[in-house]
Design a protein around this nucleic acid. Structure first.
Lengths: 150, 150
DNA sequence: TTCCTTGCAAACGATTTGCATTGGA
DNA sequence: TCCAATGCAAATCGTTTGCAAGGAA
């Protein structure tokens, strides 16, 4: 489920720039590299993976990630194996779920058809009612074998 | 080394003992304390939380966790905030999902009614078909406000 | 005895922080 | 100019490992 880089850089990049400007957060070279790196990815990327393509000081990368996260531009994802990965926030790349390959460790995004997503929201809502819990978000991780490994 | 014999079910404990015996893994005091600590919990516990009640050396606790995990008695859970928590394996406590409170950080287990769980399995299966992915397991984390915080 | 487990301390890897330097508005 | 961003090195945090001592079979 590859995100179209051009679409992201034309349509969404303007939104990202506006959001950062509103919060007086500068979109520096390093930060833009992070956004681009994540926008052109099939799924969430770890700090180390980003660092491999971006270069520069690791600490600066972490600082960029922290700034972008608190500005709501990127989100953290914790894989089943405990790896921390980063991805563009849902309002940019859309609500989606993750396919985790138990063989090769790959994490891929998957957008669900609206009907399925609606059904899932219904389930979440009903669980909330049952448990006296007020759901605001949900994350469905599916583990199994990816296209390449099965 | 404090050993708490507050086990949820003698039945489960017998199964656990049998499984460990089969694999020639000794159920020592420290390991039993881990199992008891997890059995008496409403949700997954972090190593630090377990250590607070169990005592002893932290490294021994981690070793107990590793042994029990490779014996299939406990499972790891990575919360949305990146905290690693441990819980009894699904074959002991049943398949369930997690309610994550975004206010107080609590993680609670929730077992879904069979009908809902079946519906969820259906969704997972259909996503797998769409993406050419062969699902073996799934994890649904619901974020929101718990009973106490909402 | 001979494994296996434990405790302690040191090592480790990922991430964070202090501080001096650089760079853009 | 001035404040924010960067690089580097040191510090920190959770977790793991080496090794010697303690216990059970």
């Amino acid at each position: 489920m590859r995100i179209d880089l051009n679409m992201t850089s034309t349509l969404n990049m303007a939104q990202i720039e506006r959001r950062l400007a509103e919060r007086r957060v500068r979109l520096t070279g390093g930060r833009r590299a992070v956004v681009d790196g994540l926008a052109s990815s099939d799924g969430p990327k770890s700090a180390a993976e980003l660092h491999r393509t971006i270069g520069g000081a690791l600490s600066s990368l972490y600082r960029s990630l922290a700034v972008l996260e608190s500005a709501g531009v990127i989100a953290l994802h914790h894989s089943a194996k405990g790896f921390v990965r980063y991805e563009l926030a849902p309002w940019i790349k859309g609500h989606h779920h993750h396919l985790l390959c138990s063989n090769c460790g790959a994490v891929d995004d998957t957008e669900m058809p609206a009907a399925l997503e609606k059904e899932l929201r219904g389930i979440v809502k009903r669980i909330g009612l049952r448990a006296g819990f007020k759901p605001t978000d949900h994350a469905l991780d599916i583990e199994g074998l990816c296209t390449r490994c099965r």
